[in-house]
Design a protein around this nucleic acid. Structure first.
Length: 312
DNA sequence: CGAATTTGACCGGCGC
DNA sequence: GCGCCGGTCAAATTCG
């Protein structure tokens, strides 16, 4: 069992997480809410976001009230989940799924051509052989594929909304009850046929106000939002340069990928996502109700001067 | 009526 | 080998 001290979501003190910031090939960690402090400038520089900040700092803070609490690697998410599990209330029941009988899918796959009994047996036998053969091939294929897993990025977001809009369209393909947690985990896939990006959304058990979103893979296409959103001239026109970055829904993600994605992804230069899209989406979340509820957190995250300007 | 979601079954990995 | 668990599939259902 590892130590979890470094992840404390409810602490929004400027340096509590930032000290542990790191960027690796597949993960990055850090308290993104820190980006307004002087010390975080280095962090932003590291992420290549300097231009963005200097050109339109205010617009950054007009972004979603769905607060970007923490941006961490998946390992750390697991750690947090484990913490939740350990610290969790034992009286909390798991979801009790009724176990209903299920019809057999294998036997119901009838063979319309097998009319003659004898011939039918042969055909059936042949068919079964082929089935097992293809199944084995599939298994082998899966095994070989399994090695190369797409890099994952996880976000912990303070939000009352489970599913955070990020400009892309997602189709839900699964839901699982999380062990020792009352909150299920939802699995989404990008609806674009050629795109293989997946998204996993679950609520943190220890703090239900926090949503953990994990992205896997890179978008092979621009965000659909780009085509429908107008582009205010005051916002930077090119903030999320890569498909991978476009997978991420949160404001601080404007920066992340210029540092290590644009260089590695040939599609990066063609893939643009406007900040305007995020602003527009952010306003959807920015209800008066939420503004009141999140004000405390917001104050922790931003200097008061910024707050005065933006949230009215 | 097609698209999206729901949900139980299934499968593979992993620890014991 | 067995059981648990995470992830995915796919039929059924719901939604727009």
């Amino acid at each position: 069992m590892e130590s979890y001290k470094e992840i404390k979501i409810e602490d929004h003190h400027p340096m509590s997480f930032f000290d542990n910031f790191q960027v690796t090939n597949h993960s990055f960690t850090g308290l993104m809410s820190d980006y307004s402090t002087a010390s975080s400038l280095g962090f932003m520089e590291l992420l290549g976001v300097q231009d963005f900040c200097s050109s339109s700092a205010n617009s950054v803070f007009e972004l979603p009230k769905v607060e970007p609490a923490v941006c961490i690697s998946e390992d750390q998410v697991k750690q947090v989940s484990t913490v939740s599990t350990v610290a969790g209330d034992s009286s909390c029941n798991l979801l009790n799924m009724p176990s209903t009988p299920n019809c057999s899918s294998i036997s119901s796959e009838g063979h319309p051509h097998s009319t003659d009994d004898a011939d039918g047996e042969v055909v059936e036998h042949h068919h079964q052989q082929q089935q097992t053969k293809t199944k084995q091939q599939l298994k082998a294929k899966k095994r070989s594929e399994k090695k190369q897993r797409e890099p994952r990025f996880a976000f912990m977001t303070k939000s009352e909304v489970d599913f955070l809009e990020d400009g892309y369209r997602w189709r839900k393909y699964g839901q699982k009850a999380v062990k020792n947690s009352p909150f299920p985990r939802n699995y989404y896939r990008c609806t674009s046929a050629t795109c293989n990006v997946k998204k996993r959304v679950e609520r943190c058990f220890s703090d239900p106000s926090i949503v953990v979103t994990t992205y896997e893979g890179k978008h092979t296409h621009p965000s659909p939002m780009i085509t429908i959103m107008p582009r205010p001239s005051c916002y930077p026109t090119r903030v999320l340069p890569s498909p991978a970055s476009a997978a991420f829904p949160l404001p601080m993600q404007f920066n992340i990928n210029q540092s290590f994605n644009e260089l590695t992804n040939p599609l990066a230069m063609n893939n643009q996502l406007d900040l305007s899209a995020f602003v527009a989406q952010g306003r959807r979340f920015c209800t008066t109700e939420m503004m009141g509820a999140d004000q405390g957190l917001l104050q922790d995250l931003m200097p008061s001067t910024v707050l005065k300007q933006d949230y009215r």
